[in-house]
Amino acid sequence: MLENYLPILVFILFAVGFSIVFLAAGFVLGPQRPNPEKLTPYESGFNAFEDARMKFDVRYYLVAILFIIFDLEVAFLFPWAVVLDEIGGFGIAAMAVFIGILLIGFLYEWKKGALEWE
């Protein structure tokens, strides 16, 4: 059972190792001639005037929260969908209640304008 996952582990390690080797090859083969002007952040030719890690729009934060709720829901749906043939009508009714509650929340935030940009 668990040995089925050995190829996954090897594949992930291989992928990480491969990316590192690839990146390292660029550092080795390419020239390294840094100078202060070259290393400033690109800002259409102006000098960068403040730190780029500024406050950002709260809507991104809202999207992130919504994502967590809905992604959890998808994670719940996965095992449910797999055994759907066995649990039949009762399973569908139970999930309908669950999704129904979630959809009420979704409609509420839609009406509140949480999904509006601009």
Partner: peptide, 22 residues
């Protein structure tokens, strides 16, 4: 990267990818 364009791009990508992932 601490560049404004990068930051904006990252915010946009993050929100977009996450939304479509659902």
């Amino acid at each position: 990267a601490n560049s404004k364009y990068s930051m904006l791009g990252a915010m946009r990508t993050g929100a977009q990818v996450v939304s479509y992932e659902i």
